[in-house]
Design a protein around this nucleic acid. Structure first.
Length: 564
RNA sequence: GCGCCUGUAGCUCAACUGGCAGAGCGUCGGGCUUCGAACCCGAAGGUUGCAGGUUCGAAUCCUGCCGGGCGUGCCA
């Protein structure tokens, strides 16, 4: 097969002229035997990809959405290359945030959520997340008030002691330092005086909130039957809400892990690490000091595993989960799709795991955050865009732009295409600053553009009334036809790049180039044509474009509607 | 302080092992009696944060600065 027709020197650079007949024939043949555009390579590897990891009792927001589509992309592209992939989810169903949500919900009188009949678009994770947010705001407001006042009287507390704080210190560290000073002083009645009256009140107020939290934590520890019952019920609400979203997005998990499942193992493993001198006790807590043997890594600093009250932290649970996953699936590679800010944490975790287990290769896929224009999202402050809200707004918009005859199923495909495309439109290590204008846009480099090109392919083929036979007959091609052929041809290489770099960008960009080339061809060269030979060739070419777009978009979890 | 990420057109982003800096949006000008105008064509728009170095050749590699973001022991 010779794909290069000529090479010539033009303007100081090499001009390579491909043999487009050869290329076209190749591409036609490829589709005629009903294969994909892409070689399905043999691969005996087995991977596990952990992603999504939503917390129950909190709203599922656009940050979680970016995570889901990222993980789903890795799963799909790996499968394209013949890898056996286990998509796994890890649900944060316990922890302080859950207790905070339950507390907020209790204080509101344990309201029941509205029924589906009352509100068909109801997102229970968002509904319950409101109670989390209410409580968290109340608690943090009381804390902030206390800290602010503590700073106001800092110099009075200071007296003669050295209160020099490195100005480079992060604020929360300064705060901790200050609070510890205050606690020390408060023991000897130092704060009884008039100067500290207001501070005292704030402290009492804050303490009251902490007591409420401690109380519910105590009930949790003692497995208070009422609380456990409420927990199970509210957890189910959230899981149902997540399931609904996964169905909408067409993502499937082979395995769902729960944090509550690994809690006991986490404690056991932490103690085992202490016995092996891989971790140490400090009071009631257990921590790993990487500065010491056998790690000898000053940079990795310290990682706590158990809290001083003996409860396991996320770190200990991740250690337990890693072992569980390996026992169950014996994979070659294990991916963690978790936000980029956790990359330091995963370095620590992987370092520990290397020390005591024969595990698969561990890979952290970090993706950057989705921020709002006014700053970082925070479910604590309620400053978020919930996924359900995003979906509903996108739906309204898509409906207003669509053909009247569009089915609900097609409408969902258009929305999914638009939203997923937005998440893939930047590489993983780039932040997305969320803007409604960008969601509510269907022009230019959007998911709609790609879908539109494909829908148009479908329609023209239909209209022509011709069955593509994918037999290549030599024909003189115009520049626009050549461009389409070239772009279909190069997509295989872009797919490979996307896979090797685990990055959506190369493939997505190439799909835009193909769609652009097709639109150009479409406008310049009538497909339905009086010359039968030309018509057949163009219909075949259109068919190959459609198939290429269809197969490639599947990797992004985007499908083609029949009309839009 | 230390670590990670980041800086490319007015804005949002591309650029595979170093090889002619490209798209979309926005702006300006054109194109629907013809296969779906969610489209297409054309134009304007660049000292790739700064300064050095390596190289025939640097957005890309090295060094040093500057700006932005995040992380840095009991939240996940």
């Amino acid at each position: 097969m010779k794909l290069i027709k000529s090479v010539r020197n033009e303007n100081k650079s090499l001009k390579i002229e491909p043999d487009y007949s050869e290329l076209a024939e190749d591409i036609f043949n490829f589709y005629s035997i009903n294969k994909n555009v892409f070689d399905k390579t043999e691969n005996k590897q087995k991977w596990i990809v952990e992603y999504s990891q939503p917390n129950t009792h909190k709203a599922f927001h656009i940050g979680h959405f970016r995570n889901v589509v990222t993980g789903d992309f890795i799963v799909r592209i790996a499968r394209k290359f013949g890898i056996d992939v286990v998509p796994a989810n890890y649900i944060g169903d316990i922890g302080t945030h859950v207790l905070k949500a339950l507390l907020g919900w209790e204080l509101a009188g344990k309201p029941k959520p509205p029924s589906i009949e009352e509100d068909p678009d109801l997102d229970l994770s968002r509904w319950l997340g409101e109670y989390y947010s209410q409580w968290a705001q109340r608690e943090s407001a009381s804390k902030e008030k206390f800290i602010k006042e503590a700073w106001d009287v800092k110099d009075l507390i200071n007296e003669n002691s050295n209160f020099e704080i490195d100005e480079k210190f992060k604020k929360f560290r300064k705060n901790k330092f200050l609070i510890s000073k205050i606690l020390k002083k408060s023991n000897d009645g130092f704060f009884e005086s008039e100067n500290f009256k207001s501070l005292n009140e704030s402290a009492i107020n804050w303490k009251k909130n902490l007591d409420l939290q401690n109380e519910i934590a105590e009930r949790w520890k003692n497995k208070d039957s009422e609380l456990v019952k409420d927990w199970k019920e509210t957890k189910k609400w959230c899981m149902d809400a997540f399931e609904k979203i996964y169905r909408l997005l067409d993502v499937d998990f082979e395995k769902i892990y729960y944090e509550s499942d690994v809690e006991e193992d986490a404690i056991r493993i932490s103690n085992k690490l202490v016995n092996k001198n891989l971790a140490e006790k400090e009071g009631g807590s257990v921590l790993v000091d990487f500065k010491k043997e056998p790690y000898n890594s000053k940079k990795l600093d310290v990682l706590p595993l158990l809290r001083s009250d003996g409860l396991p932290l996320y770190s200990a649970k991740d250690l337990a989960l890693a072992k569980l996953k390996q026992n169950q699936y014996k994979t070659d590679k294990s991916f963690y799709v978790v936000g980029a800010p956790q990359s330091f944490y995963f370095k620590q975790i992987f370092k520990i795991l290397e020390q005591y287990e024969e595990l698969s290769e561990l890979i952290h896929i970090g993706y950057e955050m989705v921020d709002l224009p006014e700053g970082k999202m925070s479910s604590r402050s309620g400053n978020i865009v919930a996924f359900s809200e995003l979906w509903q707004e996108a739906k309204k918009f898509a409906k207003s732009k669509s053909n009247q005859k569009i089915s609900n199923k097609d409408l969902d495909k258009v929305i999914t295409g638009a939203l997923k495309h937005l998440m893939f439109s930047r590489d993983f290590n780039k932040k997305i600053s969320f803007k409604w204008e960008e969601v509510l846009s269907n022009e230019g480099k959007t998911g709609s553009y790609l879908q539109y090109a494909a829908v148009r392919c479908k329609r023209v083929i239909e209209k022509s009334g011709i069955q593509p036979d994918l037999k290549f007959e030599k024909i003189k091609m115009n520049e626009n036809e050549k461009a389409v052929i070239f772009n279909i041809f190069t997509i295989q290489n872009e797919l490979k790049r996307s896979f090797e770099n685990i990055s959506p960008t190369p493939l997505l960009e190439s799909l835009h180039r193909l769609s652009k080339a097709f639109s150009n061809f479409y406008h310049s060269s009538p497909i339905i044509n009086e010359d039968p030979k030309t018509e057949m060739f163009r219909v075949n070419l259109t068919y190959c474009t459609l198939k290429t777009l269809e197969e490639a978009l599947k990797i992004f979890g985007i499908s083609i509607p029949s009309r839009m």
